[in-house]
């Protein structure tokens, strides 16, 4: 799968309260509604700015904090196609894969706000079209590739009835 989109840049330690504030996550399971508040405390107009397919690009420890799966889901439902970061917090990383949000660990210092990116998930490559550079990607663990290939953990269980690694 090849994803193309514009980069929206954030810093280090973007926590799950920033991604979707606790005050919203308790209210509803309507992800479209939650999506409107994604990144709101960092940029109140973020949701209005993004177009379908755009990407979040961040520094280290993206998604630290709570285990709320509303975080990757709100990002996904806002139309973000992929999150690229220098590193991810553990629970967020699992949740993203489980809910089918592609996450890529790579050197994001080579990406600037507004750069056009092309991410090839199958091959595990990132190409910065604006800067015309290839960026090396850390490979996903095998288990995660299998879950993503099935379209997330729910589909994996629907298909196999149990873990199938």
């Amino acid at each position: 799968m090849i994803l193309t989109g514009k980069a929206f840049k954030f810093g280090d330690d973007i926590n799950t309260d920033y991604i979707i504030s606790g005050k919203y996550k308790f209210k509803t399971l309507d992800m479209k509604e939650l999506a409107k508040h994604v990144m709101e405390d960092l940029d109140p107009h973020f949701y209005e700015k993004i177009n379908e397919g755009d990407m979040i690009v961040a520094g280290s420890n993206f998604g630290c904090g709570s285990s709320r799966e509303q975080a990757p889901l709100a990002i996904k439902h806002a139309g973000i196609s992929c999150v690229l970061a220098l590193s991810f917090a553990r629970i967020f990383y699992r949740n993203a894969i489980n809910t089918g949000l592609p996450v890529v660990e790579c050197d994001t210092s080579q990406i600037e706000e507004g750069d056009l990116l092309e991410v090839n998930l199958g091959e595990g490559t990132v190409y910065n079209k604006t800067k015309k550079i290839n960026i090396a990607v850390s490979p996903l663990p095998d288990v995660m590739i299998k879950i993503l290939a099935d379209g997330g953990l729910i589909k994996h269980f629907q298909k196999h009835g149990d873990y199938n690694f």
Binding site: G65, S66, S67, R68, E69, I91, R94, N95, N98, T99, G152, L153, I154, F157, Y163
Partner: peptide, 27 residues
């Protein structure tokens, strides 16, 4: 495991406990 990041609390009882998300928890 608990679907809450502070599930690590029970380590004080010499148990391995850790937080996960909702889909991991459902599985």
């Amino acid at each position: 495991i608990g679907a809450d990041s502070h599930t690590c609390t029970y380590g004080a009882l010499n148990a391995f406990s850790t937080g996960v998300g909702s889909t991991d928890l459902a599985a």
